[in-house]
Design a protein around this nucleic acid. Structure first.
Lengths: 266, 266
DNA sequence: CCCTGTGAAACAATTCACAGCA
DNA sequence: TGCTGTGAATTGTTTCACAGGG
């Protein structure tokens, strides 16, 4: 329902699509590079190329922010850097804590991309007493016991979890209880949080799996793989109905696989 | 390569929507956990909760793979693990190389999530001669000079780039020339690759910026909605005086926000 | 003519809601 | 009865194509 009309005059509205928000950092990065080279203006075409998107999309994205370009000319680099930074909330300083200082946590602490934006690593926290006091990326690692205190003292609202999966939910709960409202989760587990808390996840192996999917597709007809792995017994008496294709699916390639049955090692 | 035409909309593969493919690893992870606990079957509702999605989406996703469930009962865990693994191409072994063994590269090499899926780290490669011979995650780091040889000898088709941004494109070009057709890029830069090569990117700071956007939103629930713009400079005719440093970091930005946001459309 | 900004069309993803089978 | 599988409706995103200002 909600039929109704749009109660928003388009421009100036605060409804920036999620897909657009996700690309703003990309534009910002490209613009920052141009700024460093003292390039004064860019066209949507050039900037789009530098950011790896197409120009129509970029212009549409910018149209949600307002009209910051000049027709016939392009966009003023400095001005746009400022506007996007502001939109993303990067004109203010965000103290963050990183919990779990293993390989990944250390990599994150050393990652220049944080500091160069509005992020400041307020503290590195680890549950291992042996880590306490160690210096990583110029910052002293503190023990988990101090977590609540650190969050409060520094006014931290963003937390990064880089612990093993098993510890993630617990750490998350403590962060949230202490006042953190945005969490970036690197642990391969689903976190549950109360309403109002934002979680974004990055799972390194997921990206690789997606690549494998496409890679497999390219390899195409090499299949055969089914040889060494047998499929597990079918479920409780069920026939394996492979993807039906009753519709007008024009897919040219039928699966090279085939539904080889078999057995799967547990 | 400026834009050019349309590259093949790789999306019309074999009918599985990209968004679905991106979730399969999630389901797989949840299913693997269930499998380890010897749970024989799950309903779409339960599995969805474990994977962090809603059940309608999950059922729709599975419907693209085929009819692997049993009405009134649910899905057979082992069977589904196998089917999804096969769909993702994880029933075969994927040798990967990681280029750039800094903090991040080392973290990746040590990341259990790779090995536990079908991925095998065939080699760690770094341009720094001082790294050559060092053992990281049980693997000896090799020098970049050997890159082509390593790719060929191991039949590597997936490469992971964890170098500084400045070296990424060059490494990418060499990987591609050597035969790699899928690249996972952790360097904060846009890679250009020939048609047929797949690139996925993970930019650690981008996720944080997206969080900052939403965080700012939460905080701003009080004010906003009024206010005009006061920008650092007007778009038209701006003299770009600011710094021209190349150290990649940017201004420490202004104060705690007191400046005025919002903008007026033309 | 440059280029931006944007309605409208096309496409993709998500959610609804229920038919139908175990 | 309980749960899957799936058309249909809805919502979100991308692309097209062109109006209109510089």
């Amino acid at each position: 329902m909600a039929t109704g009309r749009n109660h928003r005059p388009a421009t100036r509205s605060r409804g920036i699509p999620e897909a657009t928000v996700a690309r703003l950092p990309l534009y910002l990065r490209a613009l920052t590079a141009l700024s460093e080279r003292s390039v004064p203006t860019v066209s949507s075409e050039e900037l789009a190329a530098a950011a790896g998107v197409n120009s129509a999309k970029l212009r549409k994205d910018f149209s949600y922010l307002g009209s910051y370009g000049t027709r016939g000319v392009g966009y003023d680099v400095e001005y746009l850097v400022y506007q996007i930074s502001r939109e993303l909330g990067l004109t203010q300083d965000w103290p963050v804590v990183i919990v779990g200082i293993g390989n990944l946590g250390a990599a994150l602490a050393n990652y220049g991309g944080f500091a160069s934006r509005g992020f400041r690593v307020a503290s590195l926290i680890d549950a291992d007493p042996a880590m306490s006091g160690k210096i990583v990326a110029g910052i002293e690692v503190q023990h988990t016991d101090l977590l609540e205190r650190i969050i409060a003292d520094n006014g931290v609202s963003i937390g990064v979890i880089a612990t093993p999966a098993g510890a993630a939910q617990q750490v998350c709960d403590r962060l949230v209880a202490a006042g953190v409202t945005s969490i970036l989760n690197f642990a391969p587990t689903v976190l549950s949080v109360p309403d109002g808390v934002d979680v974004r996840k990055v799972d390194l192996s997921i990206e690789l799996q997606i690549l494998a999917f496409h890679e497999q597709r390219k390899a195409g007809e090499l299949d055969t793989e089914a040889a060494d792995t047998a499929a597990p017994a079918a479920p409780p008496a069920v026939s394996v109905t492979r993807r039906a294709a009753e519709d007008a699916d024009d897919d040219t390639e039928a699966g090279p696989d085939g539904d080889v049955p078999a057995v799967m090692p547990a």
